[in-house]
Simulated scan of single mutants.
Amino acid sequence: MTARKKEDLDSPENPNQEQLQQPEKEISWIYCGPNQRGLLNQYTVYRGGLPQHLEPHFEKCPGLKRLIVPIEQFPQTEEAVKQPGTAENVWYQQVLEYDGGAKS
């Protein structure tokens, strides 16, 4: 997988989203974004789908869901997150700004 460029952010198609919609075949997913206090921890692995309580947060901050990738894509995604100008880096920055999981 090559790093996606910032221009790809406007594209409604995200290759990971199609896999998330398919019936689970014991696919393992990993969250590559920053910690979100009380919501998500970096490098959390999910099997058999994603927790339902995250859905409202995915709507408010799409970067959260976009940074949950099949575990096979983890090394490439982790590198892309560190490269300015990639879609993954922009999503990471969006998640840093999102405080939906913070407790008041």
Rank of each mutant, 00 (worst) to 15 (best):
P51R: 12
P34N: 09
P15F: 09
Q93Y: 04
Q17T: 11
S104D: 13
E88T: 03
P23S: 05
K65E: 09
K60Y: 11
K60G: 08
R66N: 13
G33N: 01
K103L: 15
T2E: 14
P56H: 10
G33Y: 01
L54Y: 09
A80L: 02
Y43Q: 14
V90I: 12
E7D: 12
I27L: 14
A102C: 09
L40E: 02
E88M: 02
G63S: 02
S28W: 10
P15M: 05
Y31H: 06
K6G: 02
A80E: 01
Q73V: 00
G85Q: 03
E13T: 12
P51L: 05
E13C: 05
Q76S: 10
Y46S: 10
K5M: 12
T77L: 03
N41H: 13
K60A: 15
V95M: 07
L50I: 11
F58T: 08
E24S: 15
G100E: 04
P34A: 09
P62M: 03
A87W: 01
P84G: 04
D8N: 07
Q21N: 15
P84F: 05
L50N: 07
V95I: 09
V90S: 08
S11H: 12
N41E: 14
E13A: 14
E13K: 11
S11C: 13
Y98C: 06
E26N: 15
L9W: 02
N14G: 05
N89G: 02
K65T: 04
L39F: 07
Q17G: 06
D10I: 09
G33F: 02
K25C: 10
T44D: 09
E72K: 12
A102N: 14
N16C: 11
P62C: 05
F74R: 14
Q17S: 12
P84I: 03
Y46I: 05
G101N: 06
T44R: 12
E26I: 06
L67K: 00
P70K: 08
Q21R: 13
K65M: 08
K65F: 07
F74L: 10
A80H: 01
E26Y: 11
L67N: 00
R66A: 11
P34T: 05
G100Y: 05
P62W: 10
G63H: 01
L96R: 15
A102H: 10
E72T: 11
E26M: 11
P12N: 08
